[in-house]
Simulated scan of single mutants.
Amino acid sequence: MSDRIVIHNSMGAAFIGCVLASALYGVSTIQTFYYYNNYGRDPIHIRALVLAVWIFDTTHQVLISHTVYHYVISNYFNPLALMDMVWRVASLSPAPMSSILVEVLFNGFIGFIVQSYLTYRIWRLSNKKIWVLCLIGPFVLAEFICSVVFTVMALQMKTFGELTALKGLSMTVNILAAVGDLFISICLVYMLYRRRTGYKKSNTIISRLIIFTINTGSLTTLFAIGSLISILVWDDTLIYVTFFFCIGRLYANTFLATLNARSILRSVGQDDDANTIHLSGANTTEEAIGMSKGTRPRNISIQIDTARDILRDDDDSNTMKGKISSS
């Protein structure tokens, strides 16, 4: 009886998590539409990643919505149903599937795609230094593997009580997610800061990118920490799913916001006078632009590698180019 009471009280947390995730799903869907409407000429592999993230995001939302509906609506007058995890009809698949467990796998898919993409961006910003992959890669890969292992092991269980045996693995997933996100944010900020040029226009773009990186990276980290704390403090409840249901959605929105912010960040460099910023590909130093101390060159050309790496992808046919020109 006590187990049923604990799970019954936890359904409120699951419902809140589902509502928050639904709101975030609406945002990610709008962002997906915006992306395809404005960046249809991006490389096909980037467009494929966006589609994959949205499909996984949609599937995850369907799964958690089914879970909440099953307990809160379909079995409202059936407290015994709270003991068992929601199981789909076996004939619909080779083996019975639990929507509340399979959603962990799709969360893992989304996190793996987004973290891998951001790791790739950092690797490019670092001039393809191998230490970046060695530092972040193991956390990204380990988190995904642990998510898969958790799902496979949990699908062998039928009650929520049995899930307590996987508490350590569940904590590991959240720890790896938090540490991976933290390293990604720190490395991005560090790489961006190193590329400050001393010029107001280019520094404005870089500062905006740094703020954007901190804002987007901190959300997934905080929710992963919230999920971890909930498991530690209330390990016999489902309170942690309030945070966990939203993590995949936050990853999706971070990924889409990174792509969609390019046009906004590009406009930061636009100027009404003769000075214009165009984003290009080479690193710039004072020596490269021929600046000598105490003189102002008549033609200044600053190639902003950082902005290029963040705002566009390899082989992008819609290359955003240019330079700061002043006469």
Rank of each mutant, 00 (worst) to 15 (best):
N9H: 09
S10F: 09
M11Q: 11
G12N: 11
G17I: 01
Y25V: 03
Y25A: 10
S28Q: 09
T29R: 08
Q31V: 01
R41L: 08
W54Q: 15
W54R: 04
H60A: 14
V62M: 11
V62L: 09
V72W: 09
S74K: 11
F77A: 07
N78Y: 06
M85R: 12
M85W: 09
V86P: 06
W87C: 06
S99A: 13
L101V: 15
E103N: 07
F109G: 03
G111C: 10
G111N: 10
V114K: 04
I122T: 12
N127E: 15
V132C: 05
L133K: 09
I136W: 08
G137E: 04
P138W: 08
F139K: 03
L141Q: 09
F144N: 11
I145W: 05
V148C: 11
T159D: 08
G161P: 04
T172G: 04
V173P: 00
L176R: 00
I184T: 04
V189M: 09
K201W: 07
I205V: 15
F212T: 00
T213V: 12
N215E: 07
T216F: 14
A224H: 05
L228F: 13
L238I: 08
Y240N: 07
F243Y: 03
F245P: 04
I247T: 02
N253I: 00
Q270P: 03
D271A: 05
D271I: 04
T276A: 12
S280Y: 03
A282W: 05
T285N: 08
E287D: 15
I289P: 00
R296K: 11
R298Q: 10
I300F: 02
S301D: 14
I304G: 03
D305T: 14
R312N: 09
D313H: 02
D313Y: 11
D314W: 12
D316W: 10
K323V: 13
S326T: 12
